[in-house]
């Protein structure tokens, strides 16, 4: 970089009133438009010229209903405008989907949580996105819509690379759908950071466990910041599934998870440290989940 910008680049701003209008704009300006929800991630990246300026910014916030948190027989659904703060403070999420609330609470600052959205966190698809590991362990599905229709993609298939997703140019993530977790499941999100707040995860680990009489009925483990995308580590899950919990087995699962991670060296941490910490955090997350 040879110029440090303070101002945003030029773009046109569009504020559709309905989802149909948004989809029609997106289809018309395919490839030349960018959708924003909270904007807390996109605005700094545009300022720093990390991403090219779009011709059009399509702001979804004027569309009614997209900020709904819905809880019913089919589970939980989060509209694309549901903020991180809303998830953090939602009673039902705190009670039934605690792993997601924990992740929300760990993110950025109160100011950013008031503005930034869970959907935005997912669509920006940075490997360290805190909401991703919990959503992976909860088996979330993403409802993607375009003028052509809608489709549902499992969150695991959504992330395709750092900053890359299955979302097509003309699609919007309308809703994050999370099935009811089994009644006795327990979830934990652990995030490793040097400071107690405002840091990106060096490693993020979500574990959802269904313990019964000391046996692991089911378990899901997902990792953030240790691979090109957030990942689920099924081999590690398999170590424990159906087995009686014991320290050695938990240790083995944690080691397996570390083995499945593919971290990189960067200015925040080395790959070796990240891999080691996957092991520590997975072990802790499982143990804490069992204790809950």
């Amino acid at each position: 970089m040879t110029t440090f910008y303070r101002r945003l680049p030029k773009f046109n701003y569009l504020a559709p009133d309905t989802l149909d209008e948004a989809l029609s704009l997106l289809s018309r300006y395919k490839g030349k438009a960018m959708v924003i929800a909270g904007g807390t991630d996109i605005i700094p990246r545009l300022k720093r010229r990390e991403i090219g300026a779009p011709e059009h910014v399509i702001d979804l916030k004027g569309i009614p209903g997209l900020d709904n948190i819905k809880y019913d027989v089919s589970g939980l659904s989060l509209g694309t405008l549901v903020t991180i703060g809303a998830v953090e403070t939602s009673a039902i999420i705190g009670e039934k989907f605690s792993v997601l609330a924990q992740a929300a609470q760990s993110m950025a600052s109160p100011q950013v949580r008031n503005r930034g959205t869970i959907a935005g966190n997912i669509c920006n698809a940075v490997p360290s996105a805190d909401s991703a590991p919990p959503l992976l362990t909860l088996g979330a599905k993403l409802k993607l819509v375009s003028q052509k229709g809608e489709r549902t993609v499992g969150i695991e298939d959504f992330f395709t690379g750092p900053g890359q997703t299955a979302l097509a140019d003309d699609e919007i993530l309308q809703e994050i759908q999370i099935p009811h977790p089994p009644p006795n499941s327990q979830g934990i999100y652990l995030k490793l950071t040097p400071r107690r707040a405002m840091d990106l995860a060096i490693v993020g680990v979500a574990a959802v466990v269904i313990p019964q009489d000391g046996v692991c009925q089911d378990i899901r483990i997902a990792l953030g910041a240790v691979a090109p995308t957030p990942i689920r580590v099924r081999k590690a899950e398999a170590v424990l599934k159906g087995q009686k919990f014991d320290d050695a087995l938990i240790e083995k699962a944690a080691k397996t998870a570390a083995g499945q991670s593919r971290p990189i060296d960067d200015h925040r941490a080395s790959a070796d440290y990240r891999r080691d910490m996957v092991e520590v955090l997975v072990k802790r997350a499982i143990k804490q989940a069992i204790r809950r």
């Binding site: 040097p194 400071r195 107690r196 707040a197 405002m198 990106l200 200015h267 925040r268």
Partner: peptide, 20 residues
């Protein structure tokens, strides 16, 4: 890294926050 500052932001140049 060879003269380049890799962390020229308050996200990564880590000053203590109230919780620290």
């Amino acid at each position: 890294d060879r003269g380049k500052t890799l962390n020229p932001t308050f996200l990564d140049y880590k000053m203590p926050h109230a919780l620290d």
